[in-house]
Design a protein around this nucleic acid. Structure first.
Lengths: 347, 347
DNA sequence: TCCCTAAGCACAAACGTTTGTGCTCAGGCT
DNA sequence: AGCCTGAGCACAAACGTTTGTGCTTAGGGA
């Protein structure tokens, strides 16, 4: 036995209380009074009665009639992650400013959950979707896109997404990583380990590309064994860092792909009695309010999360308001390198 | 020019493609076949056609007919805040496990926004609301509650909320603070400053109560001037800490009400060339994954955010499923003190 | 042969809006 | 007096479901 919706004063109730028809009440309350020649006294009376009865128009009825819900779907791998919650914050704000509500879905880093949630959003008749996909699979996104439902992919574009015509907005990982690694090299580092996140995802691939780009620029040979790790987590960062420290005794610097990875690295480095940056320099992707308060504030490549969220929201809302699909575009948001104190100079 | 909902295969389309009536399709798809004596071949055919046409039942139409939307509202002051996003994570997960969707609202720390968003949620016919209020005002919550809409208040219960019959779930701030301060005292501290958050909010009041309780236990006089600050932010923490350091030259310890406040304190302490815990001991409320990686890992009182979210979700979902309002209850979730290395012993 | 029963489905109303169209009445003009 | 016009509102359909009830047919028993 499920509960029913409480507040149930309808247009009809207001109409009855006023002595006019339902349509008149609807038009009066919608501000279409003079377009339909409803006299001012009538309008006033209707408004008064509506207030007295605490009338709140039913959005479900409106949605059904108007064939639009004013709902957008936001699907993230983990809303408790600072990165995604910052994006969600921007989107929610923008949505609310445009009279839209967001229904939030959390895939808990599971692809199967991601798929079913996507279907659920569709069933809820959302007018558009912003998704930060897990980044492994892709077909379900393409499926949504073919249904003409506006969809924006943020952060982890899959390789084939960039080839398809789905709109995406993502950080320019390559350029920022290139810059970050270049700083290391210009401080004399030549053996630079990489703590990577989920392999195959766009951020991962592109950061590696930026890493190799920087090495090439300085004519440093690329050694694939310098890349370790398999997730964006503390544990993965720690294991990978330990592995690298054990394997490469001439290692002078480490690039962590996320701040979680960096924390893991910090653990590994501490455990070996080493310190940053004296023994090992450490740089990371992704900033965090806490990072400058660490034992040694890390030099990082900071994604412009606010911009990511705002651009994604704008792209979606524009489509919803215009009713037109935008052409495929790959929006690249620059990241900026924030210099702190985790790079030592070596000779 | 607004867009219309894309996927628009309806029951009628499936019915037409199958050669049966709409009601038959509805019942077949709802699994009520044998209750309404629909033959197995017919059911099979209907299912096949439905799949071919990519039929997705309209939740708005169902909502209208059934008078329930399967939507719950979650309203937080700032979803990008780790505390609230962790709560939202738990709620979202629980909701989805129970076939409910959550519509997320972010009041951006504004009471007026909070009020209008609450109205919006009502209009969306959500079946229940979980709100982390700003904590200043209260009447609008009471208004919702009177409308019979289940509402759960998490974290910042206003004084009058606890007197009203609204269900709330919150951390046991008082006990945890008492314990935290007691640790300081047992290490010899007697002049303990407090960096407070938004004054008047429940967390603030109760933590002060716990602070005073601990002092009383050890027969240490309470000095109201030892309390400074006015927000849960880094800036407030910094200013307040500077003020205390300037005023009380015999200050040996500081209790920060949030980790943001603690970071501010860290800044202030650093700027004066002091260090934690050698010159000043520092403890804080609220944990954070980063806290153990700080220059000096802080001893904290850790809220059980997961539990907070789960209990709130369960309380709401139970009400929705049962259709009954639960009696007023004040759920207290214990916090645990995590000892790290920010308390020095003084003599 | 007739009636009854059960199987198998169709009809129609209802949920609360929005909106195109139609209806009525009063007043002014000829 | 008759007609026209515009003011002021009501009627009804439609959006896509769900569900109570009614209808038709086939088959079996008397």
């Amino acid at each position: 036995m499920a509960s029913s919706i409480p507040s149930t004063t309808t247009l009809r109730d207001v109409a009855a209380a006023t002595g006019v028809s339902v349509s008149t009440v609807s038009r009066a309350l919608a501000g279409k009074a003079e377009a339909y020649r409803i006299s001012q006294p009538t309008v006033d009376l209707i408004c008064r009665r509506a207030n007295e009865l605490g009338f709140v128009p039913s959005q479900v009825a409106r949605s059904l009639r108007l064939k639009k819900t004013g709902l957008i779907g936001v699907l993230v791998p983990d809303i408790s992650n600072a990165f995604f919650s910052a994006i969600a914050h921007e989107i929610t704000r923008a949505a609310s400013d445009n009279g839209l509500s967001v229904v939030l879905s959390d895939s808990c880093d599971s692809v199967v959950r991601e798929k079913t949630l996507l279907k659920q959003l569709q069933g809820r008749q959302v007018e558009g979707i912003i998704i930060c996909p897990i980044g492994i699979e892709f077909s379900h996104l393409q499926g949504i896109h073919q249904t003409q439902l506006p969809i924006i992919v943020v952060d982890r574009i899959q390789q084939r997404v960039s080839r398809s015509d789905i709109i995406s907005v993502t950080t320019d990982h390559r350029t920022a990583t290139n810059e970050l690694i270049s700083r290391l090299v210009s401080h004399g580092h030549r053996r630079i380990g990489v703590l990577q996140g989920l392999p195959g995802t766009a951020p991962c691939r592109e950061r590696i590309a930026g890493y190799r780009e920087a090495l090439r620029k300085y004519r440093i040979p690329f050694d694939p064994h310098l890349i370790a790790g398999d997730q964006f987590t503390i544990a993965s960062g720690r294991n990978a860092c330990e592995q690298l420290l054990d394997t490469f005794l001439d290692l002078t610097a480490v690039f962590a792909m996320s701040n979680q990875n960096a924390l893991g690295a910090l653990q590994a480095i501490r455990c070996r009695g080493l310190s940053v940056p004296k023994d090992i320099s450490l740089v990371a992707f992704d900033d965090h309010p806490f990072i400058e308060f660490l034992e040694t504030p890390l030099t990082t490549a900071t994604q412009d999360v606010k911009e990511l969220g705002q651009v994604a929201a704008k792209l979606l809302i524009d489509q919803i308001h215009s009713g037109k699909r935008l052409p495929k575009t790959l929006h690249r948001i620059p990241a900026k390198v924030v210099e702190r104190h985790s790079i030592a100079t070596v000779h």
